[in-house]
């Protein structure tokens, strides 16, 4: 059905208040889940809004399956869905009404899926949005976005405020959908658990530029903390991959390229006392601060 690149951003530049984005180049592969990380006000939400044409970039091109704004806007709307954080302008409506409003935009919308998701999330169809808690509002945004069955999903902090049950249901929904439809997910998050459970690839938004995609499992395997035997340690700054070294009291180093470091330590006959991966929190912090 849809061939090509789900989302292709070329040389995007956008200024909004104190946010300066760009130039950004990004190409997403089909069927992958990307976690977009970056500090507060780094422009993650702004970038998602540009992809939805809710904000206009100063320059650059955004293509969804090869189609671009503004000429293909109508077609693009069927290919991409967005769960903003927060979902605004819906105060007076119920989830049932919002479903009815969105349904006609998407050819792939199925009412049965929509009802089932609302039920799985235990979110009422007839309660006004303004009366809802933060968690319920999040579930509304997710129910609507998932029910479009659009091949590209942009989720702004999708698990923010979700209770444990809903979080698990959300995870199951993504897995179930992946068996039926091609779907590429781009989610922003600050939660390490989201990265662990959902992400295949990591994108870092730093100083307005995108770094990545970085393959999550490859990152976890290549960054490592290594303790060395203290007897005779040469200058560790010459060991490839080493980003940090602490000599006292237990000499250890941190490498961003475990294989290279290991080979070099072996070649120099430096005994390794112990080695272990970095925790995901530490790894992400290091990547963001690098």
């Amino acid at each position: 059905m849809n061939s090509g690149i789900p989302l292709h951003i070329k040389q995007l530049v956008k200024q909004q208040d104190d946010i300066h984005l760009g130039p950004i180049d990004l190409e997403l592969e089909p069927n992958m889940t990307y976690a977009l990380l970056g500090p507060n006000s780094s422009g993650k939400s702004t970038l998602l809004k540009c992809c939805m044409n809710l904000m206009k970039p100063a320059s650059g091109i955004i293509e969804i399956y090869g189609r671009s704004y503004p000429q293909d806007e109508h077609r693009i709307k069927q290919l991409i869905a967005f769960a903003p954080d927060p979902l605004e302008g819906c105060e007076l409506f119920t989830l049932g009404q919002m479903g009815d409003m969105i349904a006609p935009w998407y050819a792939s919308w199925e009412r049965s899926h929509f009802l089932r998701r609302a039920e799985q999330f235990k979110v009422p169809l007839d309660k006004r949005y303004e009366k809802m808690s933060q968690g319920e509002r999040k579930k509304v945004a997710l129910t609507l976005a998932l029910s479009t069955q659009a091949p590209v999903l942009l989720l702004d902090e999708p698990t923010n405020g979700l209770d444990i049950n809903s979080r698990n249901r959300f995870k199951e929904m993504l897995v179930e959908d992946a068996e039926r439809i091609e779907r590429t997910v781009l989610m922003t998050t600050h939660a390490i658990e989201d990265i662990r459970q959902f992400a295949d690839q990591i994108l870092l938004l730093k100083n307005g530029r995108i770094e990545g995609p970085l393959e999550k499992d490859r990152l976890i395997q290549s960054w490592r903390r290594v303790w060395l035997s203290a007897d005779k340690l040469p200058d560790l700054s010459v060991i490839p991959g080493v980003v940090e070294y602490n000599g006292y009291p237990y000499p250890h180093l941190i490498t961003r390229n475990w294989q290279e470091t290991l080979d070099s330590l072996n070649a120099n006959q430096i005994p390794i006392v112990r080695d272990q991966p970095l925790s995901l929190d530490e790894l992400m912090e290091r990547l963001l601060n690098e």
Partner: peptide, 16 residues
């Protein structure tokens, strides 16, 4: 299991 399902169970990526 499907690739996505196993990746989800093991908290690893579909690439792996």
């Amino acid at each position: 299991p499907s690739i996505r399902a196993l990746a989800s169970d093991l908290s690893c990526s579909v690439i792996t």
